[in-house]
Design a protein around this nucleic acid. Structure first.
Length: 566
RNA sequence: GGGCUCGUAGCCUAGUCAGGAUAGGGCACCGGCCUCCUAAGCCGGCGGUCGAGGGUUCAAAUCCCUCCGGGUCCGCCA
């Protein structure tokens, strides 16, 4: 069954375009001025609503109700827009049967590509970028999961995405690790990132008691920047050692980076950038070199080179962004909210260099009930620890519900469910909300969390594996409210993906996933599939197939494994 | 002290950028549903001065101002 659509397969977006066209035509016939169409979605009333009567009322000096009535009388319909009706001041639009039919065929045809919108070009998305001085903690994971999910959505939309991990390999923190490795014994039994943290905590404590040792740290940093090969090797080894462990954790979270970019690679670019800033007349020298950003409302000058001639983090970060900007159409960073000022400064300097500032997604901190986390003091809940406990809990749940499954199957499901629950918990909350990590909450699989979504997918899979669907079906048989609701939600998916990629907000995807799973569970409860009459059975099998495709695509975008059984 | 940000039922949270029809969910609590495709599910109930006070508007959780409370930033650190 091939789609005959010429408008693309994002049915809801196409429907919206049709509404715009019809509404604009109606305005012309009424001889009303063109205006903001003010389209909005308000489920329960209509598939799309225009508030245009409110907008025109003051201009026309007419009651909104009257305007809505007049507009509606002149509104035509087409193959996707079945009808429009005025409800008081609101102009409500309703989708046609053809809309539903085409949604089904679009999903079936597009399959894993369903959700694609016309997004083109290359996106470089930087996320995680944690200092390699210890394991990722639950706060870093919030960054990773947001970044990874955005990357997945951008890819689904049609972008070519390169994810990057910016490795801070030349700071004081890494120098402390290197110094620590030289002075303390590394525990070879521990996972490498945890062993690194042990050393880092010890080094910090030691330096605090013996401040004179700070000179050794400073010396290490200077030798590294001045190009000392032996020291560079020590730094490189220490960073790679820790990164191995971090990478392992990311992998188990279904997070991957296409490229690790080392901070030290940009040392050579710094002179050129500072020269260019001078030629713009904004860099002044009085020992150090600094940029006046007061015209951007930033009171303090940004130092771009120390008076001793060494580079600073900010300048290396600027160089990194200059490099990235030349290689992509969209440059996106996922950063903790504590980086807001830094990011603003980097962005403004880039603008001075005639380069667009990156789009930055900020997220607020994850803290512990007893306060904020600190790698330095060893106060943190590591991602590994969370995953281990959550997976263990998930195993208990599987074991309880599906005692007959093989050990291997139980383990696999527990792994998928544990990670899904963790990722979803971090994604569902708006990024500008601080979170408090709580073990009880993390281990309590909420009713409409990750497992809820996976369960809906598993149920769909379960129906489909009991039969074969031959793609012959009569879509007009699907008229029940639960069926219609499910189809309409399937139709929304590309619009949701577009929303995510435009606004860079992952929580809307999380909400959508929850609604879709809920709609499927309702359908599952009230609409028998396998036991239905042959024609109805085929039609519902088509819908189950569609729902499963969309559920699977949503779960993939969320980085949650769509399991077939749980 | 200044900047940024958050404050929605006992607890957690969507919606706020682009103001509009009964403020969506979840946890907890109460009551139903497994001779029926996996009950990690479905249905119903209880619970809201959208931090407080002003303002703008035909219309404010949403915009503006003040205040209160939490977070965070304000290094020639990274």
């Amino acid at each position: 069954m091939r789609s005959t659509s010429t408008d693309g397969d994002a049915m809801f977006l196409t429907f919206r375009e049709h509404v715009k066209k019809l509404l604009t035509e109606a305005l012309g016939q009424c001889e009303y001025p063109s205006s903001d169409l003010a389209l909005t979605v308000k489920p329960g009333y209509a598939d799309l609503t225009s508030l245009i009567a409110f907008k025109l009322a003051p201009v026309l000096k007419l009651a909104p109700q009257e305007i809505a009535r007049n507009v509606t009388q002149h509104l035509g319909s087409d193959e996707l827009v079945a009808r429009a009706e005025a409800s008081g001041p609101y102009v409500n639009f309703f989708v046609s049967d053809d809309y539903l039919r085409r949604t089904l065929s679009a999903v079936l045809e597009e399959d894993q590509n369903y959700g694609r919108v016309d997004a083109e070009g290359v996106v470089i998305l930087e996320h995680t970028s944690a200092n390699p001085n210890g394991p990722l903690h639950i706060g870093h994971v919030r960054n990773s999961v947001i970044g990874d999910t955005l990357a997945r959505c951008l890819r689904q939309a049609g972008y070519r995405v390169e994810t990057q991990y910016y490795v801070n390999n030349m700071g004081r923190q890494i120098a402390l690790v290197v110094w620590g490795i030289m002075n303390f014994e590394l525990n070879g039994q521990r996972k490498s990132d945890h062993a690194t943290a042990d050393i880092y905590v010890k080094a910090n404590a030691d330096v605090e008691v013996h401040p004179t040792k700070l000179g050794e740290i400073r010396q290490l940093m200077q030798r590294f920047e001045s190009g000392d090969r032996d020291v560079a090797c020590l730094f490189k080894d220490a960073v790679e050692f820790c990164l191995r462990g971090i990478n392992q954790t990311l992998k188990s979270l279904h997070v991957s980076h296409d490229r690790y970019v080392w901070e030290s690679e940009f040392l050579d670019d710094i002179d050129g950038i500072i020269d260019e800033l001078k030629s713009h007349g904004v860099a002044e020298s009085d020992g150090s070199t600094h940029v006046d950003l007061s015209s951007f409302g930033i009171g303090k000058d940004l130092v771009v080179r120390r008076s001793d001639g060494t580079s600073v983090y900010a300048t290396r970060d600027i160089a990194y962004h200059v490099w990235k900007a030349g290689r992509c159409n969209r440059m996106i960073d996922v950063l903790g909210a504590d980086h807001k000022l830094n990011a603003l400064q980097v962005g403004k300097v880039l603008e001075l260099l005639s380069i667009n500032a990156p789009e930055v997604v900020f997220f607020e901190f994850v803290s512990l009930p007893e306060g904020s986390m600190s790698t330095r003091r060893g106060h943190f809940v590591s991602a590994d620890e969370v995953l281990e406990k959550v997976t263990e809990k998930a195993y208990d749940e599987v074991d309880k519900r599906r005692p007959t499954l093989s050990e291997q199957e139980k383990r696999a499901i527990a792994q998928a469910v544990g990670i899904g629950a963790t990722r979803y918990d971090l994604l569902k909350v708006s990024t500008d909300k601080p979170m408090v990590f709580d073990w009880t909450e993390a281990l309590d699989f909420e009713r409409q969390g990750g497992p809820f979504l996976q369960y809906a997918h598993a149920r769909a899979s379960n129906i489909l594996k009991k039969t074969t669907f031959d793609y012959q079906y009569e879509p007009e048989l699907l008229t029940d409210e639960y069926e219609i609701k499910l189809i309409k939600l399937c139709a929304q998916f590309p619009a949701v993906i577009e929303d995510v990629t435009v606004n860079l907000s992952v929580s809307v995807l999380a909400s959508y996933a929850r609604e879709l799973a809920e709609a499927f569970n309702q359908f599952y409860r009230f609409m028998p599939v396998l036991s239905a009459e042959p024609e109805m059975r085929s039609a519902r099998l088509a819908l189950v197939t569609c729902a499963r495709v969309v559920l699977r695509n949503v779960l993939n975008c969320l980085g949650i494994e769509p399991v077939d059984s749980m």
